[in-house]
Amino acid sequence: MIVRAIERLGATTSYHVSDLGRMAAFLGYTIIGCLRTPFRFGELVRQIRLIGVNSTPLILFIGLFTGMVLGLQGYYTLRKVGMEGTLGMLVSLSLIRELGPVLTALMVTGRAGSAMCAELGIMRNSEQFDALECMAIDPFRYLISPKFLATIIAMPILTIFFDLVGIFGGYLSGVVLLGVNPGAYMDGIVVKVLNEDINLGLYKSFSFALLVVWICTGRGYFVQQIKGAGFGAEGVSRVTTQAVVYTSIAVLLWNYLITAVFI
C-alpha cells in the first residue's frame, strides 16, 4: 500500500520533471529556429496577421468596455472621497500597469493560442511533423519559430491598442456621461503616468507573449507525450483545453510576481 503510493509519487514526479525538460528543450529549439536560415519572412507576416490583426477587433471591443466600466466604477469609488478629478489617473494606470497586459494575454491565449495548439496537435497526429523531418526540414524554423516571433511582436502592440482604447472608454464614461472635468481627466494621464509605468506594462506584455506562445505551441507539439490526454481528436481537444488553462494560470502567477517585485 505505502510502497505503491511512493511508487506512484515517484512516477508522477518523474513524469513532471521530464515534461518540464521537454518544454525547456522545446523553447531552446524554438529560439534556435528563429536564427536559422533561410528565415521565412512570409510565414512571419502571415502569422502576425493571424495572431495580431485578426485579434484586433476583439481586443478593441474588450478594451473599450473595460475602460468604460473602469470609468463607472472608478467614479463611484472616487466620489466617496471627493476625488473624481483623479479618475483619468486611476483608469490609465490600472490599464497600463495591469489590465491591458493581462487581459490581452488572456484574450490572445483563448483566440490564437488555442488555435496554435490545436493546429500543431493535429499536425503531429497526422504525421506532418514526421513528413517534415523526412524531408530534412526543421519543423522549428519552418513552423514554430515564426509563430513564436509573431506572438512576441503582435502582443505588445495589441496591448497598446487595448490601453489606448480603454483610456478612451474611461473618458466616455467619466467625462461624457458623468461629467468629470475633461482637463482633469487628461491631466491625470499626462502628468501621473510615468515612463516606468509604461515600461512595466510593455515588459509584462513581452513576457506574457513568451509564456502564451511557449505553452500553447509546446503542448500541441507534444500532444502524444502528454499523460492522460488520450489519442486522436480527443487528445488534441484535451491538450488544447489544458494549454489554455496552464497559460492562464502561468500568466496570472507571473503577473503577480513581477508586480510584487516592481511595486
Binding site: E119, E127, C134, M135
Partner: peptide, 26 residues
C-alpha cells in the same frame, strides 16, 4: 534522410499548403 522519398500511410500532406505548394516543398 535526404536520400529518401517517403509516402506516409496517411499521406501526411501539410494542411496549410495547397497541393502545388506541397509538391514544391522539397
Amino acid at each position: 534522410r535526404a536520400k529518401f522519398g517517403v509516402l506516409f500511410q496517411g499521406s501526411a500532406l501539410l494542411d496549410s499548403m495547397t497541393v502545388w505548394e506541397n509538391i514544391a516543398l522539397p
